[in-house]
Design a binder for these strands. Structure first.
Length: 795
RNA sequence: GCCGAGGUGGCGGAAUGGUAGACGCGUAGGUCUCAAAAACCUAUGAGGUCACACUCGUGAGGGUUCGAAUCCCUCCCUCGGCACCA
């Protein structure tokens, strides 16, 4: 045996051998399946970062463990290769996105292999390849035929820097999630996916899946289902009516005005001659503002009067109708009843424009004085006053009662609203899958023919953004369309949002080479659902919501049995820089995992990242701490020279198996590693038998696959340790027990007793007598006795 | 503002009603060495003591319990998501 642990030699040797022997390729028809998936990466030019390694190591340990447990494990890797960064890089550098992307993929593959990750490379996919995106386009066409994709003229989010529209989910705080440019609203004709049709099921089925609570909450909030009522108000001396949606009709005895969003179709129509120009100017000014400008400006309320009023049927009082930009056209009906006494925004608006404020709720503070300060505005709880039939009721009971009342009188009807909008998937960019639509000479859209799939993305395109889709100017792209469809026909020139590529890739892994279907029904039935999915927490509402949506659609259409894609989801926590800040080029604190591989080896890096702490928490990098796992591996290496010839597996090692098994199943890798370190400390005092040592190596092998494989082969095994069965464990039964002695609940020591005596109260009492005497001072004491564990003397 | 997750030594973190600080890093002292590094051994929450004893200690305060880091209530702070959502 070599005397020193040489990580570089061992790791390259075994990586080459595993690849040659195709050790990790998955059977086509599994008997006992387990699908373990990482969120496939965007192949960025800067290569693998430590966060990738964290998530990938976790699923790798889990995959290796499940293989040893006898499962057929599907553990694939691929590339989310379309998208803006490659295109933006191309615009700056002139290097074609296909070229830079393929180069980045080569780097990723090289680096991932250097980590000893056990992917089945025969199933590798990339979303930018025609053999992949032909099925992305097929799905688009399928959704179109099912009326789940439609084209509509609507106000959309426009990023003037990326020169493309964005989905609602890609707008963060009023700005583009990529470049942080303020987003503006623009009227455009675009393609939408009718995800709202599935809102209720996306909400209800969250209970079926084992996901982090915070992620489920994120989806619940994003879907934003709210029960309420639309009340229909007649506008005085006109033919107009205004629908106002509210979730709080209980306070409507206090309603004193109505506000319309500037985009509301009635805003201008309603205005009397006297006020029309004011309203017109206000609407124009609002249109010029970015979303962020509308939100910021200190939330100062602005607005104009329309000159008209509506009647509050509950009080028979007039409510002047105003227009203000604090009301959003996208939410509810774009019109709001103002209840300034019990809504802070309405209060601010009323104060700004001198509108009356009425109190209709008394809160727990008992304040029943007129409301003149914002602190007096009760929103959440209280008792109704000045509210006719509701007086004296709790607001929640009042809400139910008044809804019934309004419906009965025919003034309105119960309606549920959602925060979720239909998903806008058109992008005016080059590096994406072309939308498979052709327009006839009248401009009417048609899905492309079967034979026209895939609609190829040409390489030779001027992709500098102009606001017009780059494909517009491509002769090659439009070249054959008239031959196929007829004179005057032309192709859709927008491409699809990359989330269209990534919302179905986990289906493709089941059957990645299929050129007849996106995946065969048998393969989908065999592998779905994904049993464990690991990835970053930033995808709460984007990828994870879209993927759930598409799964439900395909389920409803009979393609797949399951209606949820990811049964168990976990996030890896962000790894911060050594300075405690987010890793960023700007701070110069980015850690390259390959540096650690060079210095300590992949096994050390894997152990280090898993030992940092719980998988899902945010934790800072600390290069010094890598010494711990590295020393551990050196000591493991040395230990093999000291093992004895005995053939029995000792109790401590069997116990380790039980504990590590449990820890892996719960993804508690940091604790599992700590326990292996503990037992190695014990081995160094009393060396293990050869049989025990083999068990230890097997338990360590998912975590540190290279060193364990090398040591295994040095024990004269001809086959890989990664083909071994996971060893059987057994809980250790302690023969001698340290019984805890407490006096008045305070720990005062332990007493060593045999298993039998420790369960016998009188034996424990007599054994502990001398010890507790001085604390009890001769006083009588009653005892609390937990057999085999603890005795507590209480005086 | 609303929702969610958290707060434990010098540091990363263990412990989910029963010996708080496992395991690791770091630090100090020692062994080896001409020396250093590496490796190994010992110690390492605070106070206290020659050493024991003992006291205090899991963000703050209160409660439940024989016994609380763990369960309940009030508050403070940190992180994440959503947000002029009616």
């Amino acid at each position: 045996m070599t005397s020193r642990y040489d990580h570089a030699a061992i790791e390259t040797k075994w990586q080459a051998r595993w690849e040659k022997e195709r050790l990790y390729e998955t059977s086509v028809s599994p008997k006992k399946k387990c699908y373990i998936l990482d969120m496939f990466p965007y192949p960025s030019g800067s290569g693998l970062h430590v966060g990738h390694v964290e998530g990938y190591t976790a699923t790798d340990i889990y995959s290796r463990f499940q293989r040893m447990q006898g499962y057929d494990v599907l553990h694939p890797m691929g590339w989310d290769a379309f998208g803006l960064p490659a295109e933006n890089f191309a615009i700056k550098s002139g290097i074609h996105p296909r070229k830079s992307t393929d180069k980045a993929i080569a780097t990723f593959i090289h680096q991932i292999k250097a980590m000893g990750l056990s992917y089945d490379w025969s199933r590798e996919i990339g979303t930018h390849g025609p053999e992949y995106y032909t099925w992305t386009q097929w799905l688009f066409r399928f959704l179109y035929k099912k009326d789940l994709i439609y084209r509509a003229h609507a106000p959309v989010n426009w990023c003037s820097s990326c020169k493309t529209v964005l989905a609602n989910e890609q707008v963060v705080g009023g700005a583009c999630e990529r470049c942080e440019t303020d987003v503006i609203q623009k009227e455009m004709e675009q393609w939408f996916v009718r995800i709202t049709k599935y809102a209720d099921r996306l909400l209800a089925d969250l209970h079926k899946i084992d996901w982090p609570e915070s992620t489920k909450m994120g989806q619940r909030n994003w879907i934003g289902k709210k029960e309420g009522i639309i009340i229909n108000y007649k506008v005085q001396s006109s033919k107009f009516k205004i629908d106002c949606w509210t979730s709080r009709p209980d306070t409507n005895f206090g309603a004193t005005f109505i506000v319309l969003a500037p985009e509301h179709p009635l805003a201008l129509k309603l205005a009397t001659d006297q006020y029309r120009s004011d309203v017109e100017i206000y609407i124009e000014q609002t249109a010029k503002k970015t979303q962020r400008e509308r939100i910021s400006e200190g939330r100062k309320k602005t607005g104009v009067f329309t000159g008209r009023s509506a009647i509050n049927e509950l009080t028979n009082e007039e409510m002047p109708i105003w227009v203000s930009d604090f009301v959003l056209m996208e939410f509810g009906t774009g019109a709001v009843v103002g209840v300034p006494g019990h809504d802070k925004r309405d209060f601010e608006f009323a104060v700004t424009f001198g509108l009356p404020v009425k109190r209709v709720v008394v809160g727990s503070d008992g304040d029943n004085l007129p409301i003149t300060r914002i602190e007096q505005v009760q929103e959440e709880s209280g008792t109704m006053v000045n509210s006719g039939l509701l007086n004296g009721m709790d607001i929640h009971a009042a809400k139910a009662k008044i809804m019934d009342h309004i419906v009965e009188k025919g003034w309105g009807k119960r309606t549920t609203t959602y925060h979720l909008r239909d998903w806008l998937i058109s992008r005016q960019r080059y590096w994406g899958a072309p939308i498979p639509i052709v327009y006839d000479p009248d401009g009417k859209p048609h899905p492309v023919n079967d034979v026209d799939l895939p609609v190829l993305l040409p390489d030779n395109v001027e992709f500098v953004p102009t606001g017009q889709s780059p494909l517009t100017t491509s002769k090659e792209f439009q070249g054959d369309v008239e031959t196929i469809y007829g004179k005057g026909w032309r192709r859709e020139v927008d491409t699809m949002d990359t989330f269209m590529d990534s919302n179905w890739y986990f289906f493709r892994f089941c059957d990645p080479k299929n050129n007849k279907e996106f995946a065969s029904k048998e393969s989908l039935r065999a592998w779905l659902p994904v049993d464990l999915y690991v990835g970053g927490a930033e995808h709460t509402v984007l990828h994870l919501l879209y993927a759930r949506f598409l799964t439900k659609v395909l389920h409803d259409e009979g393609f797949i049995d399951v209606d949820e894609p990811f049964m168990k989801l976990r996030h890896q926590g962000t790894i911060l820089g050594e300075d405690g800040r987010k890793m960023s080029k700007r701070f110069g604190n980015v850690v390259d995992p390959m540096d650690a591989v060079d210095k300590y080896g992949a096994d050390t890096l894997r152990l280090y990242e898993m030992f940092m702490g719980p998988l899902d928490i945010m934790k800072p990098w600390n290069a010094r701490n890598m010494n711990g796992p590295n020393r551990f591996l050196h000591r493991v290496w040395a230990m093999q020279g000291r093992i004895t010839d005995k053939t029995m597996v000792d109790a401590r090692t069997k116990h380790l198996v039980v504990e590590v098994t449990d820890d892996i199943l719960n993804l508690r890798f940091n604790v599992a590693i700590a326990k292996m370190m503990t037992i190695l400390n014990a081995y160094e005092v009393t060396p293990p038998s050869k049989a025990s040592w083999k068990v230890f190596l097997k338990v360590l092998s998912p975590f540190a696959p290279h060193i364990t494989e090398e040591l295994w082969s040095q024990l004269e095994h001809m086959t890989s340790i990664h083909k071994e069965k996971w060893p059987k464990g057994e809980k250790m039964v302690e023969e001698i027990i340290n019984v805890i002695i407490q006096v008045n609940g305070k720990f005062r020591g332990t007493v060593e007793l045999s298993k039998e005596k420790a369960s016998d109260q009188s034996a424990v009492e007599s054994a502990s007598n001398s010890m507790v005497e001085k604390y009890l001072d001769g006083k009588a004491a009653k005892t609390i006795f937990i057999p085999g564990k603890l005795i507590n003397f209480v005086s």
